[in-house]
Design a protein around this nucleic acid. Structure first.
Lengths: 252, 252
DNA sequence: CTCCAAAAAAATGAATGCAATTTTCCGCCG
DNA sequence: CGGCGGAAAATTGCATTCATTTTTTTGGAG
């Protein structure tokens, strides 16, 4: 017993119309105050306005955003499904607190997604997009040489983002953004300036990344990117929280 | 300006208590009627009770599940964030309809996640878990030899699930389940019996999978699993929808 | 003074109500 | 006969309300 589709799925809903250009990221729930609220609330949490483990006070947030509890609670359910908060039955929402295990796991997933992005990028990247990444790479190298940490980070993130963009895979992009958001809560960056040696290592890894991308060597790039993230995690997780018991560094 | 955490995050909320055994999958929103409804509604859609592109009638579903609109709408928002349905402002929810591009993209993400799972499994799998996978593999081979398609599928899925389990990464598991659910809507299986040659190919790939896992060769397994999914996609996407224009099979 | 228990207060989960937008239906005009 | 315009009906989005559970406070016993 199948409820039949509304006979007219609207003119622009047909798949044929989208063949030429992939439709822009019309996030299903981007508009309409619910989506607005969702974005704002997510940012609010990611930016650290609520301490990890803290309750998410509905009443207060309602007042802050000037809305009633209904849309707020809808947003909370979504954020819980994204893993940003957790819902305790009858006890409200809490900002998810990442223990060592979870942090490590999230880094690995990021690594896996980047590895996938690299693999796909090797198949689909355009010369123009590659040139742009190459340019960013050289710019980043310049920052590295003159010890411009801020510029380095900016280029670094831009490169990784471009690779994900080049993969041209919307579900991947969404998932990547989700996990990146979860990790953004723990400030794992800003450690490099205390880890000068890791900086050089990272720079060398980026040379490998660019090289593999130039060769369109998907599997190589995939492997390098995953290990790159592993090393980043190792550098970051050290101070944020105790490393998991079995973190022997077999990588590279 | 940081709202400070409620001074007592409760006895069992501390992370220290969870070090010994990772806490069981207490899905944040598993209980409490909202979670119940979420699961039921997701199954309801995944099982195909609503045609792709069809409106999701709030009123009717409320009656069917015997609840009011509020929890239903919360569940809809979550399902939208999972990508199962899409929310049109002021026009309700529709079952997401996968065009060719999206289907291909989803397969690739599944491939990427399985690749990651394989890589991690090589690091973390226990001898017992490996033995179990080996057993399933041989059982699957038996099914293959006697042309037991149903048994073959069961073993196949069990093996892939075990690999994901062996990766021992909760976020990965969750994400994997999410994408698997989205793909389950399109019945891409049940094609093998029309594709006997692909069946043999898949069986050979599984030999490679087991071999790489035995050698704990993470990168190899990663690559094999991704290509395995690529081939599966090629076999599946052929009939479900037109393949994307640039599907030259460079794989293998 | 500390600890425990019961009541008050607050917060959560879900239902209902209401304004606004959309969809449908019907009569009208071309 | 087909297309168009407008009103009625239905649906959506959000606010409000109510019952239940949790948390805090208060009173008292040990």
């Amino acid at each position: 017993m199948v409820l039949d589709p509304v006979s007219e799925p609207d003119a622009d809903a047909g798949s044929a119309a989208n063949d030429g250009a992939r439709l822009p990221p019309i996030q299903s729930l981007a508009r309409s105050l619910h989506g607005e609220l969702l974005t704002r609330l997510r940012d609010y949490i990611v930016e650290g306005n609520l301490a990890p483990g803290a309750r998410v006070p509905e009443r207060i947030l309602c007042e802050r955003f000037g809305i009633s509890r209904t849309p707020l609670r809808e947003a909370l359910k979504v954020l819980a499904s994204e893993g940003l908060i957790e819902l305790l039955p009858n006890r409200g929402a809490r900002v998810r607190q990442l223990d060592g295990h979870e942090l490590v796991d999230l880094f690995d997933v990021m690594g896996g997604l980047e590895a996938l992005a690299g693999r796909l990028a090797c198949e689909k990247i355009t010369p123009a997009a590659f040139a742009e990444i190459e340019r960013l790479h050289h710019e980043m190298y310049g920052c590295y040489m003159r010890r411009d940490l801020h510029g380095y980070f900016a280029c670094n993130q831009a490169i990784h983002d471009r690779i994900v963009q080049a993969a041209d895979n919307e579900p991947l992009r969404t998932s990547y953004a989700n996990f990146a958001g979860r990790l953004r809560r723990v400030r794992y960056s800003a450690n490099l300036d205390e880890n000068r040696d890791r900086w050089g290592e990272a720079m060398r890894e980026h040379e490998e990344i660019l090289d593999a991308l130039r060769r369109r060597a998907g599997n190589d790039l995939s492997d390098i990117l995953f290990r790159h993230l592993r090393n980043k995690r190792r550098a970051a997780a050290g101070r944020e929280t105790a490393p998991p018991p079995d973190t022997e560094d077999t990588a590279s």
